[in-house]
Design a binder for these strands. Structure first.
Length: 594
RNA sequence: CGGGCUGUGGCGAAGCCUGGUAUCGCGCUUGCUUGGGGUGCAAGAGGUCCCGAGUUCAAAUCUCGGCAGCCCGACCA
């Protein structure tokens, strides 16, 4: 097949006052010659919609748990996503690089993360026995480059980024491409002289991320987030609501407050009954066989809010007693942050017996002297509550924080749906989401640990401040599918669909239809539309089903109306068709996406 | 790492309990047919029944041990 030279050259497209090379060359795409292995049935291993459709539509194939091959369609879609990311990153002054995925242990040891990352870091040895790892993120390498090359404040600020494969040895890969061991990430890193500079870089990323996800056609929310093992002061996550997600976020529809549940705060509900007044003394009472909060509530006739929940945890090798209101849940993230040990664990039964002289179910804070006691702030100001007596089958009434026991008051509680928004008081909703982007103000953690210094205007050595920012490329595709699918397949946004329009002759054996379809197809290409010609010798039903399945946003059907000079333009999402003149077909699609 | 489920042509499944010819649908190949929503007919190709050991005259099937995948939990920048 001869190629029209006009189609085979890379297309340069202008974005604002800059231009980019389109990664996708426009060359003839004839379905009969393409590898698009669609399936009629859903492979048994796929449960979440995005996974099912990616397999059925011939986008991906699994190689192993959490390891996928991206076939032609997926790669095309992912390249378009990457191009959008690239354009928006360039637009804020980002400079694209490409760093090694294979890292020597030394840089990770310098930052301290060689030990912190544990089994999630893929580790290997080279032939000389030297330790290496496959990078799961690139703060270390970026900081190494900055340390080696940045000398002066005049070189700052810098925004460096890459789009690159990341490796994480997930304990449990799942949900198709949503949780995998090898994936693509756009990660960027900023270096600034001071906090104000970091704030600016952070804000630029915030805005760029919004533009990226909007251009990708996603419905998303930005939430305050916990910084986790990355370290740092401030962080936001970009989330897409989906049942396939694993993160929960609290959202206030009234004032717009939103935060990851790991971080969210809220006003707890009022206690179910008023506390007894007065400076009462703790008093033991018999609670035979009543171990749980619910059992004690039923036994005493008082609501769960009248009780204190005592949780015994081991952090940093030492026991910690965490106190919460009876109906509240411990936020493990908040607790871990408070005690500075992400690897804390629950105490074992024999430890509890040794430390408290009683079994779990009868534990309380009164008289406990040999360990740190943390109390959630919801207990502050409460009086005369019920807690375990540290004697099996006994509880205490009239226990008051600050009088009958001392504790450090802090935020330990995980927010629950229905709690009052801390800003406006409206009830919070809790939504399941997928994280597609995350931005961090890192502060000096890496620059300090790895010795990055530049001279300031006074000629003094100072440590630049850093930020890091990530986008999960495949997750954008997954979320688009999760958000936009129906019983027939994907309904991808035009910006990230592998093709924008498919031209389908109803009967490719009909010379008139074939010729008209070819012409319309050429006109689409000439207009810069990413078009696909379904020239297969298949029945129309098959072609329609496949086009719906792979999610092409528009379809031009050349069929029996051709006799009247008309073809059909059908929108995938609505299945709505309009008749357009043959000569106007390509322009009609262009008009829809303009 | 704990708990559960599943491994049978490319995909989806039956057969396993009660051992004895590997079965069905889809897909694939060829021919005819049909031609506006996965046409119809016919003839074909394609399988180490996840792997290994054991029991048995005989193992997809029973026993033991592995491996892999999925789901729940733990974990998760």
């Amino acid at each position: 097949m001869r190629e029209n030279p006009a189609w085979s050259a890379p297309i340069a497209i202008f974005i604002g006052d800059k231009f980019e090379f389109n990664m996708l060359e426009f060359r003839p795409m004839r379905w009969s010659r393409l590898f698009i292995p669609t399936l009629r049935e859903i492979p048994a291993e796929a449960e979440v919609p995005s996974h099912q459709w990616l397999l059925r539509a011939g986008y991906v194939r699994q190689l192993s748990a959490g390891i996928y091959s991206y076939l032609f369609l997926a790669q095309r879609s992912l390249l378009k996503i990457q191009q959008i990311v690239r354009q928006e990153m360039n637009a804020i002054g980002g400079q694209e690089m490409y760093l090694p995925a294979l890292n020597p242990a030394e840089v990770w040891q310098e930052s301290g993360r060689w030990d912190v990352m544990g089994d999630n870091l893929f580790r290997l040895k080279d032939r000389f026995g030297r330790d290496l790892c496959l990078a799961m993120t690139h703060e270390e390498v970026m900081t190494t480059i900055a340390r080696g090359e940045l000398r002066s404040y005049k070189q700052l600020p810098q925004i460096w980024y890459q789009i690159q494969t990341k490796f994480r040895d997930e304990p449990r890969p799942k949900s198709g491409l949503l949780r995998v061991r090898q994936f693509l990430m756009k990660d960027s890193y900023t270096f600034d002289m001071d906090q104000a500079g970091l704030d600016t870089a952070y804000d630029k990323h915030y805005q760029a991320y919004c533009r990226i996800f909007e251009r990708c056609g996603l419905q998303y929310t930005v939430v305050e987030a916990h910084s986790g093992a990355m370290g740092g002061s401030q962080s936001h996550e970009f989330m897409v609501a989906s049942d396939a997600g694993e993160d929960f976020v609290a959202i206030c529809k009234s004032c717009g407050y939103s935060a990851n549940l790991e971080k969210a705060t809220a006003v707890p509900s009022e206690p179910g009954s008023r506390d007894p007044e007065g400076d009462l003394t703790p008093e033991e009472f018999h609670t035979p066989g009543r171990k749980t909060i619910a059992e004690v509530a039923q036994f005493t006739g008082l609501p769960e809010t009248s009780q204190m929940k005592s949780l015994v945890l081991v952090a940093g090798g030492k026991p910690v007693l965490a106190m919460l209101r009876g109906d509240h849940q411990l936020s493990e993230t908040k607790f871990a942050a408070r005690v500075g040990d992400a690897a804390f664990r629950q105490a074992q039964a024999d430890e509890i017996r040794e430390w408290f002289g009683a079994e779990a179910g009868s534990l309380g804070p009164v008289g406990v002297a040999n360990m740190t006691i943390l109390a959630d702030q919801a207990l502050a100001g409460r009086r005369n509550m019920i807690a375990g007596a540290n004697r099996n089958d006994y509880h205490l009434r009239h226990v008051t924080l600050g009088e009958d026991f001392q504790a450090e008051i802090c935020d330990l509680r995980q927010v629950a749906a229905g709690d009052a928004c801390g800003q406006c008081g409206a009830p919070l909703e809790v939504v399941k989401t997928v994280e597609i982007g995350h931005i961090f103000k890192l502060g000096y953690k890496y620059s300090e640990a790895m010795g990055l210094r530049v001279l300031n205007a006074e000629g003094k050595e100072v440590t630049p401040i850093m930020g890091s920012y990530g986008i999960g490329i495949e997750r954008i595709l997954c979320c688009a599918i999760e958000l936009f699918h129906d019983k027939d397949g994907m309904m991808l946004p035009g910006a990230i669909a592998p093709f924008l329009v498919v031209v389908t002759p109803a009967n490719n054996g009909d010379p008139a239809q074939k010729e008209a379809a070819e012409r319309i197809y050429s006109e689409c290409l000439a207009l810069g539309l990413d078009a696909l010609l379904d020239d297969r010798d298949e029945r129309l039903g098959v072609k329609f089903k496949d086009a719906d399945l792979i999610g092409v946003p528009f379809r031009i059907t050349v069929g029996k109306k051709l006799a009247g000079g008309m073809v059909e333009l059908t929108e995938r999402r609505t299945k709505a068709s309009t008749d357009v003149a043959v000569a106007d077909a390509a322009r009609a699609v262009a008009a829809r996406v303009a």
